[in-house]
Nucleic acid binder design. Structure first.
Lengths: 287, 287
DNA sequence: ACGAAGATGAAAATTATTTCCTGCTTCTTT
DNA sequence: AAAGAAGCAGGAAATAATTTTCATCTTCGT
């Protein structure tokens, strides 16, 4: 009901027009030579400032170019569009979403919106980088360990303690018998109680945290299965681990705790839990 | 010679003033739950018929939906656009982009590498979505609060407790006087000690956690400045907050604790810390 | 149940777009 | 080189689209 009556009403709303050539920029170049003087002015401007034009009205454009509005409209119609609005829409489609300054660095002069965008972009970049360095085989290996684990210990200090905490909550909800500890002393004590059937996951961005390394060494001595989540494959922590899950967060110039290092830890944890869940549901042997 | 005069105002026409990325579809999903009935109708239709909408006028759309034109315009403005035309243009750009949201669903048949890729992709998508719903003005507001805060309290329960923990570590290193608490009872006690000059940040994905809401209410009564980090703008937590920082993680079909909900919390926290640092370094007055 | 806050649509006000008309230029033809 | 034809350009009127205002109605919280 809604659709039928609404559309047929006005002639201007004809849905499927200009099927043939919806590519304004190309078409402009095609007819450029045949355009009269004023319209050529319009064409020039549009080709140069397409991303401004799509936000301008006929009047804006006409004024900027010092031509009449009629000229702009005629220009659009000559190109084959019904009028200026249609031209603008197609131009916008043609342009696509601007992702221009994605990789640039933070500038104190930037306004908040830009800071936000750039910071988020860095997180995304870090996740992508992690995708590149994280070995899927290691993921499978760890999930295999988790599936047969009697108990899972999660250890992290400082910021990584937060990641451990989050991992703990996720795993709890997956039905994994697990515990978390962010206190260095207690960690070591707990690790001393780990058995061969247990999995000990140590999290440290730098892989250099003494407490975690010590804890992992203890776990290793107890023959527990040790897993490291770290950014550095040759770190002391990585040496203590049976399996290493590598993150790929770039160093940040600001402060050590700043930047997306935690984001990627969580991304890795998320993968573990997701894959665990899938494996739990389907009988083994796949993948 | 004629060039000089027209330029000053016209050329600027309207640099898209919208914050974040101009991704209408994501933004619609972000605010969908907060929309009134009629506007939700519009949202539904736009999500379903985006490629027709870009050729329709307000009148067309209003008729097709059997709502008033005012509603359509209000809908666009609520989304943050100046009006319908701007919305339409941005929508068109969005559509034009070839690789839009890749909501690849997980398939138990996938091999590990694919699972990893898809899971990471979901995190990236969530960060992008958050970029679309997070209001930079709110970020600035919160950082202003932080800059003049006597003390910052960070509260979260469960998984969000981990996020709070990470935020605490980051802020500590920025020299912010702060404390974190993940125990419901103690939280409330602490909040009862907050003063007018303090900032209380409550983190909860759903915004429904009773403990956090209670804690925030106490903080509000103490006239502390309250900040919420949540995915739901109309949640009880959001109501208790002077400023709301919105995340944009899509619901995940798996488990509540799964998915990138934590990742985006961290991304938001990261932005806070980054911008705080920049502001700290440069004398005020910018942006 | 009552009041306040908010949602909705009708219509008015504003703004944008298109058409129409006129004067002008340019090109062609002689 | 001059006259006519063709068609271009701009102003203004006409039309259409968009936004605001305002009165009414609904809903939510107390």
């Amino acid at each position: 009901m809604g659709r039928a009556n609404g559309m047929g009403e006005t002639e201007t709303s004809s849905p499927p027009h200009t099927f043939g050539l919806p590519i304004p920029l190309v078409r402009i170049r095609g007819v450029f030579d045949t355009l009269p003087r004023s319209e050529r002015k319009v064409a020039d401007y549009v080709l140069d400032h397409a991303d401004e034009v799509i936000y301008s009205s006929v009047t804006d454009l006409a004024q900027a170019l010092e031509v009449s509005e009629s000229t702009v409209v005629r220009f659009c119609q000559r190109l084959g569009y019904q009028g200026y609005p249609e031209f603008k829409i197609l131009l916008a489609r043609d342009l696509g979403t601007p992702f221009r300054d994605t990789y640039d660095t933070l500038d104190p002069q930037d306004d908040v919106a830009t800071i936000v965008r750039k910071t988020f972009q860095m997180s995304i970049q870090a996740v992508n980088d992690t995708l590149a360095v994280l070995n899927p085989d290691s993921v499978r290996e760890v999930v295999n360990l988790l599936l047969s684990a009697h108990h899972v210990f999660l250890f992290g200090c400082g910021g990584s303690g937060g990641s451990a905490q989050i991992a703990y909550q996720k795993m709890l909800r997956l039905g994994l018998p697990c515990s978390v500890c962010t206190d260095p002393h207690t960690q070591t004590l707990l690790a001393g109680m780990a058995s061969k059937q247990d999995v000990v996951i140590g999290i440290s961005y730098s892989g250099n945290n003494e407490d975690i390394v010590r804890t992992m060494r203890v776990a290793l001595e107890r023959q527990a299965k040790t897993v490291a989540i770290t950014n550095y494959p040759i770190s002391p922590l990585a040496k203590m681990a049976n399996v290493v899950l590598l993150t790929g967060a770039a160093e940040t110039p600001l402060v050590s705790e700043s930047g997306p290092s935690r984001v990627v830890q969580l991304a890795v944890i998320d993968v573990l839990c997701t894959y665990y869940l899938l494996r739990q549901r389907t009988p083994d042997g796949l993948s």
